[in-house]
Computed example of a mutant assay.
Amino acid sequence: MVQVNSEIGPLKKVMLHRPGNELKRVHPFHLQEMLFEDTPLLEKAQAKHDTFAGILRENGVEIFYQEDMLAQAMKNESERSAFVEEFLDRSAIPSIGLRDRLAEYHNGLPLDEFVERVYTGVLKSEFDGGDSLGAVTYLDDLFSSTRCPTAISRAIAASTSPMASFCPTWASPTASASPCS
Score class of each variant (00 low, 15 high):
75 K>I: 08
102 L>I: 11
72 Q>E: 14
161 S>N: 12
158 A>S: 06
177 A>Y: 08
175 A>P: 03
21 N>C: 07
29 F>D: 12
127 F>L: 02
78 S>F: 10
136 V>N: 13
137 T>D: 05
159 S>R: 02
61 V>R: 15
137 T>M: 11
101 R>H: 06
7 E>T: 08
122 V>F: 01
53 A>D: 06
77 E>M: 03
100 D>Y: 02
167 C>F: 15
95 S>F: 11
153 S>H: 11
46 Q>G: 11
34 M>Y: 14
26 V>K: 04
77 E>Q: 05
118 V>R: 00
24 K>C: 12
172 S>L: 10
10 P>G: 06
134 G>M: 07
160 T>H: 09
77 E>Y: 05
179 P>C: 13
122 V>Q: 01
168 P>D: 11
165 S>K: 15
144 S>Y: 13
54 G>K: 11
13 K>S: 14
113 E>F: 01
4 V>I: 15
84 V>S: 00
149 P>E: 13
141 D>I: 09
125 S>C: 09
31 L>H: 00
59 N>K: 13
25 R>M: 14
150 T>N: 07
112 D>V: 09
66 Q>G: 00
152 I>G: 07
159 S>V: 03
112 D>W: 03
97 G>H: 04
10 P>F: 02
46 Q>N: 08
54 G>E: 12
178 S>W: 12
116 E>D: 03
154 R>C: 10
81 S>V: 01
71 A>V: 01
90 R>A: 01
31 L>P: 01
131 D>W: 13
67 E>G: 02
160 T>W: 06
57 R>S: 14
36 F>N: 04
63 I>Q: 02
164 A>E: 07
4 V>M: 11
140 D>E: 02
180 C>D: 07
153 S>V: 09
178 S>G: 12
68 D>I: 08
92 A>I: 12
118 V>P: 00
82 A>M: 07
27 H>E: 09
28 P>H: 14
107 N>T: 13
171 A>C: 05
4 V>D: 09
14 V>S: 14
110 P>R: 03
21 N>M: 08
67 E>A: 04
87 F>M: 10
124 K>R: 12
